[in-house]
Structures are given as C-alpha cells and as structure tokens.
Design a protein around this nucleic acid. Structure first.
Length: 572
RNA sequence: GCCUCGGUAGCUCAGCGGUUAGAGCUGACCGCUCAUAACGGUUAGGUCGCAGGUUCGAAUCCUGCCCGAGGCACCA
C-alpha cells in the first residue's frame, strides 16, 4: 500500500474564495486524494487557512474586530464551505495555530544555528497615521517617470517601471490616505537563500518530470541577474508568529513577527501535528509523514497550487527545510494550475464579479460545480467560465449521460422485474465486448488519475458512462424482454451493476452523487474495480435496490440568464 | 523591457516530425421508445495566429512578428 501526502495551497483568510481559487488547488487536490484512497492507498490530505500578514489585519480592522477573532470566524466560514464542497481534508488547520508557532520558531532557530540567517538594518516607510510600516504596495504616489498619479511603491502600473517608495512624488498611504510618511530604521532577518543556491538548483534539476510551468519559474529565480537573492522573513506587524530562535528570545527582534510566506508553508507540517493532537495521537503519528528518519522515506508528497505560488514552493520552502539540517520530507511532485477567468475577464472580489464558493452552493449542489470545474481545469493554459458552457456541459454530461442512464435502467427493472436484481441468462458476445471495452477504459482512467491529468481523466470517466448507454441501446432489454425474458434479466442485471461501477469510479469527481448511488444500490462497500468483470457481478441476483430520485436536474435557460446577470458585478 | 506558457473546427480542448488533422458539445439527418423531450448512429464543419526557414515530409523543429496569460523577488 502506497503512502501519499497531499497538500493544497492554503487559502488566505481574508474573505470567501471564488471558483478560480477552488479549481486552482483545493479541488484537484481533493480529486487526487479521493482517488488514492479509493485505490486503497494511505493518504494524508492537508490544508489550512493562511492567517497572517497585512491584509488580515486590515480586514479585521474594517470588520471592527480583533484580528484573532476575525481569523477564527473566517476560518470556521471557510471550513464549513470546504466541507460542503466535499473537500476531504484529513485536517483543515490554521497557520496561526500554536503548533505552527512552535514549528516556525524551531525552523528559524535551526536556520540560525546553521548560519543561514543574517540580520539586516534597513529603512522602510512608516505611516504615523496608520501606526504601521507600509509594504511597498500600500504606498501610492505620482510616478517620477511618466507622471501617472496612482503609481504604487513597487511599480508604476502605467509605465511598468520598477520603483522604490522613496521615488514617488507626493506619496501617501493607500490605507488611510495619509501623507504623513517617514523613513524609519528597522531590523529584519534574512534567509540566506543565496548560500543554498547550488543545492536548490541540483534538487530542481533532478525533477525532470515536473511541468515546465513549474521548473521554468524556479530556474528564472535561481539564475536571473545575480542569482537567487536572500529573502526577508520578518515583518513589523502585531499579528503573526513572534520572532524567536526556537524557544529562546531573539535579542533585537522584540515585537516583530515572521513574514507570512515564511510561516505559511511550514503550516503544511504543523497541520499534520494539529491533526495528530486533535486525535490524541503522539508525535510519531505525524512524523511518519514528514520525517524521513521517522518513517516518511516511502511517502510520495504531492503539492497542488496556482502558478503564482510556484516560487515559494520550489525555492523558499525547500530552502527552509534543507537549511534546517534535519531530514524533512521534500516535495516529490508539484501540480500547478493556470487561472480560471470569468466570462471574458477576471473574477473580482471588490466588484462582486464572478461566483464565489458560498454563492455557488446557494444555487446548485457541489457536484455540479466539481464536475464542471474539474473537467475544465486550467491545466495547459488559462480557462474561462461561461454560463452557456456550464449549462450545456452539466446538462449533457451529468443529467443526460449519467443521470438518465441510472434512471432508465432502474425504472425499467422496477417495471418489469421489481426492485431487486433479476436472475437468469448468461453473457453473450455483446457483454464480452462491453467488458473488454470497459476494462481498457478503466485502465486508461487510472492512468490519467495517477498522472493528475484532470481534464483527460474527466473525459475518460465520461466515456465510461457513455459506454453504458451504448450497451443499453444495442442490447435493448425492452425489446428482448418480449421474446426472451431470461436474456433481458441478464442485461438488466449488468446494467444495475454498471451503476454500482459508476458510483465507485465517479466518487473522486462527484462524491455526493456517488454516495446516493451507492445507497440506492444498497452496497456500502465500494471497492476499486481492479477486475472489471468481477466488479460487474458485485450485485447478485435477488439483491434489493431502490430507484433514486433524479440525480441531476437540468439547468434551464431562465436559471442561466438569471445567474448570468446576478453575478455580472458592477460594470466599470 | 526581459523570461515562460498558450493561440488547432461555431464552443471547450487533444494531437507536438510521418498515411486523407482528432474528441466532446452545438447544427443537420436517421434509428430507438426503457429513460430527466433523455439514448444510439450517420454527417456537416478547419489555408492548425501571421510571415519566412530547416526537412523527402511540419499543426508538430528554428527565426521574426501579432494576440492572450503569468513571472520578474518581499502583495499575499
């Protein structure tokens, strides 16, 4: 039995995520986790909320709540939505957990001990009105190069020139609008990534099976300009993990916290400890997933993320793990995704444009979204959500091909043989051909799922559903029944078994529907069909079943038009 | 500006050096009538972004250009 460790990029705490965020990491990670569990492998699937940083502090202030309370509430909101989408995390943790505090401080201490931390005194913009240091992007002013009035402190959006906040004319805080800014001296810790450049590069070079999208970004950072640069890992903020050297205080760093991108990936590990603690297990339970000296040497670790997250997962986080000098498990495969756009543009939280996870579940069950999103996952390039496409895909694939198949076979059986699997008859050439076809298709489906080729896997699954309709059409039990009821019984028995097979195979994509099918067929045990022919005899003659309600109601034109205008957002 | 990825039928995509460029959806036609007016079959539809080049042969390799997206280091 293989052991698979799976992490999804951890969603930021600030607000409810949209469908693009969902399909970019959590949903495909869930697909993979469910598939691997279905195959009988041991899976640890981890995700969490990413709770630190300036945006969390600002969102909390806007909501008029203490940051800790705000994050606790938003964590529950996100956890609830994730549950309702069927995201099957073994644990959904928090980067603000005590476990992550301790582990992040531990890593910083280890890195310092190995001479990989240096202290840097630097000048940074401070806003007296806001009472905080401002990240470059929170400062706007007039561009000295082109005169654009809303240039940001790091770059002018108009002429694209790279800027320093001190370059700006009439700089002001984008938080308060205050112009009362000054340069202040502050001390920060830098992770000496430059010292680990060769080690990181050798490691990246060994990953020959990774997508180009992933390795090219890493190599750019490694080799561009002067090569890999050191990275600041602390900030002057109130909310975060206090800077400490392991359990010891860090002289001169009082009142400072670790930078969110330093502690967020460490939460992948801390999350496993949260899981163990919540279950009352000791440290060996989570260490066997993360420490190669404590049982993790046979673990395959796969990370899922959007392409914007790649640098931190290919360089920053591995640098932290390698630099610790301890035998932590490094990622084996990174599956990265492009972006999902919404109807000709980007999803936009501020404009209310596009569908957000909570809204999606208000209008349709999770499986509709899961199916569409996964079968249109932005793997090779950016993808686009349109209501037309959504309506047509869902109606055709789910309602017509799968839903109607289940309906026609169960209802036919009920009317001719009753609500139990009929007995009698033996396979003929049509059935043998179907078994051969299905066996080949199931093996192809497994191949796609192992390779995490999400779209192709969805196409294979759909083809497996279609094979059922083709069989019914050619076998025509409604016609056979008139002259040869025994053969019709065999055909129907096979059809009912196909439903069970579909429940098993479809579970990674549409888990809620699979569960309904399994219940209707009266078979709670959904073992993976390693032997397809055998799997199609799992429901024996005489086994009772029930006719399920309509699996997928079709989306009407009225619904589509209604939703299209409802989620269009404010035109600008 | 630099780097990377993408631009293939009306739509969503596959193919990435070798027979007449494929699939699903949409359209047209036929069949079936068990079923959510569902299903099955047939068929139509493309100078493979543009211009050059390499090759016996290019959607597939190279060069340039156009269009879209991302990255370019402290925004998560």
């Amino acid at each position: 039995m293989a052991r698979i460790l799976i992490t999804s990029a951890i969603p930021y705490i600030n607000g409810i995520k949209h469908l693009g965020n969902l399909v970019g990491s959590q949903l495909p990670a869930d697909l993979f986790a469910r598939y691997q569990r279905g195959r009988g492998n041991e899976v640890m699937f981890l995700c969490a909320t990413d709770e630190h940083g300036t945006p969390a502090e600002l969102a909390a202030a806007k909501a008029g709540k203490p940051v800790a309370d705000y994050c606790a509430e938003m964590h529950e909101v996100q956890a609830d939505i994730a549950r309702r989408f069927g995201l099957s995390f073994d644990h959904f943790g928090r980067s603000s957990s005590p476990q992550n505090h301790a582990l992040t401080q531990h890593f910083a201490g280890q890195l310092a001990e190995h001479g990989l931390i240096r202290e840097v005194v630097e000048q940074q913009m401070y806003s007296r009105a806001d009472g905080r240091f401002l990240p470059d992007r929170y400062i706007e002013g007039t561009c000295p190069n082109c005169g654009f009035e809303s240039a940001r402190g790091d770059q002018c959006d108009n002429c694209t020139k790279q800027l320093d906040p001190t370059d700006l004319i009439n700089p002001h805080s984008t938080i308060s609008g205050s112009t009362d800014l000054e340069l202040r001296e502050t001390k920060h810790l830098y992770l000496r990534q430059s010292a680990m450049k060769d080690k990181l590069e050798a490691w990246i070079d060994s990953k020959t099976d990774w997508p180009v999208l992933t390795t090219s970004i890493a190599k750019k950072w490694l080799n561009d300009g002067d090569g890999l640069q050191d990275r600041g890992i602390t900030r002057d903020l109130d909310w975060g993990i206090p800077v400490k050297k392991g359990a010891e205080d860090w002289p001169g760093m009082e009142g400072k916290v670790f930078y969110v991108w330093f502690d967020a990936p460490i939460e992948y590990i801390a999350c496993a400890k949260e899981w163990a603690d919540a279950k009352g297990l000791d440290d060996s339970a989570w260490q066997r997933w993360w420490r190669t000296d404590k049982g993790a040497d046979d673990v395959r670790y796969v990370e899922f993320m959007g392409k914007d997250n790649v640098p931190f997962h290919t360089l920053g986080f591995p640098a932290t793990l390698m630099g610790s000098g301890e035998p932590w498990k490094l990622v084996d495969y990174i599956k990265s995704f492009n972006y999902l756009n919404y109807d000709g543009g980007q999803f936009s939280t501020s404009r209310g444009r596009g569908v957000f996870m909570d809204q999606a579940l208000e209008i349709l069950p999770a499986d509709y979204w899961r199916w569409w999103l996964l079968s249109h996952a932005p793997e090779s390039s950016d993808a686009e959500f349109t209501w037309d496409n959504f309506q047509v895909s869902v109606n055709k694939d789910l309602a017509d091909v799968l839903g109607n198949f289940v309906s026609r076979i169960t209802k036919f059986c009920r009317s001719k043989f009753g609500e139990a699997v009929p007995e009698g008859g033996a396979y003929g050439s049509q059935e043998e051909a179907l078994l051969a076809d299905l066996t080949a298709r199931v093996r192809a489906y497994e191949g796609c799922m192992e390779a995490m080729e999400v779209r192709k896997a969805s196409q294979e699954l759909r083809a497996i559903w279609v094979a059922g309709n083709e069989y019914l059409q050619s076998a025509a039990p409604w016609s056979t029944f008139k002259t040869d009821p025994e053969t019709a019984a065999m055909q129907v028995r096979l059809g009912l078994n196909l439903i069970r097979l579909y429940a098993v195979l479809s579970a990674p994509f549409i888990p809620f529907t699979s569960a309904r099918l399994a219940e209707a067929m009266g078979i709670p045990d959904l073992g993976w069909p390693d032997d397809v022919a055998a799997a199609l005899t799992a429901l024996p003659a005489g086994h009772g079943f029930s006719v399920p309600d309509v699996l997928f109601a079709k989306i009407s034109d009225e619904d589509r038009e209604d939703w299209q205008s409802r989620f269009a957002g404010i035109r600008s």
